[in-house]
């Protein structure tokens, strides 16, 4: 092993003209990608008043429900709010398009036909393209010009298990594992540069490759438009049951508070 390591001598030109350029190009492409993504991002679409009202109506019921076991409001008030909400849910007062007509079961809207949904999906796709295309180009470039290059020798010994990781594209069974091939150097950079991007571009950068690798459609799914797809009429109906259930659990915080206080101050035992 020692003799084979000594017999390999890397031309400094490889360092200057292959190793550094690959690293530099990858860094620059990452920075460029960050700015392109910033340019492509359209500002989140403003919801109309009715849509916000629809979205937040459920929250009203939830707020009421979460306090019910130890509610700050007296029973009569609690009951009137609860019944008002549940009646409003039945009548569809909070629905964006007014109360539903007839009792035909409304199919959940197809996300592909709704233009606002499409926007969200397109934005996700665009970001994805900006992520993937440059990486493919760089990989092609390295494969075309530098295939089979050995670029660098790691300063520490490694076991044979790392061979497939560090010497991709160089099929020599008995070369020391410490030598790194050009394609492997690309992959090392691809995963390893995130820390550097964070340093250059701040924490919320879009050059970070780890995100787009893990979830191809997460950007589209996590877009703020996504919750619109849910059928509010149905969730309102479900919320009614929850409200009734919470009403059964209702307990006023002011119930027996006198005795509680008297006990606390030692007037009652």
């Amino acid at each position: 092993m020692a003799s084979s390591a000594a017999s390999l001598y890397l031309d400094p030109q490889i360092r200057d003209w292959v190793l550094f350029p690959i690293t530099l190009v990858m860094i620059l492409v990452g920075v460029l990608r960050h700015y392109v993504v910033l340019l492509l991002q359209s500002p989140p679409k403003k919801l109309s008043r009715a849509a916000i009202r629809e979205q937040r109506a459920l929250m009203r019921a939830q707020i009421l429900r979460t306090t019910s076991a130890n509610s700050p409001v007296p029973p009569s008030v609690y009951r009137s709010i609860s019944q008002h909400l549940s009646q409003a849910f039945v009548d569809g007062t909070y629905l964006k398009d007014g109360p539903p007509k007839g009792d035909a079961p409304s199919a959940p809207p197809n996300p592909l036909t709704d233009p606002s949904q499409m926007d969200g999906m397109m934005a996700g796709m665009k970001t994805q393209m900006v992520m993937m295309v440059p990486q493919m180009v760089i990989m092609g470039w390295i494969n075309f010009f530098f295939q089979g290059f050995v670029l660098i020798k790691l300063p520490f010994p490694l076991t044979l298990g790392f061979k497939s990781m560090l010497q991709r594209g160089v099929e020599t069974p008995d070369m020391d594992v410490r030598w790194v091939s050009s394609l492997s150097w690309y992959f090392l950079n691809f995963f390893g540069l995130n820390g550097l991007y964070r340093l250059i571009l701040g924490n919320e950068n879009s050059a970070d490759s780890s995100r787009d690798m893990t979830t191809p459609f997460a950007a589209a799914a996590a877009a703020p438009q996504a919750p619109q797809a849910q059928d509010f009429n149905k969730s309102f109906k479900a919320e009614r049951d929850n409200l009734e259930f919470a009403e059964g659990l209702y307990e006023w915080v002011g119930k027996d508070v006198e005795t509680r206080i008297l006990k606390k101050y030692g007037r009652l035992s």
Binding site: G254, E258, I261, K264
Partner: peptide, 24 residues
């Protein structure tokens, strides 16, 4: 009657019952 109850709740919330001295 409602005011009395709520005032008592407020007392219950604010008084320092974990302090070094008993509430009384």
């Amino acid at each position: 009657t409602l005011a009395l109850k709520i005032f008592l709740v407020a007392v219950d919330m604010t008084d320092d019952d974990d302090g070094p001295v008993p509430p009384q």
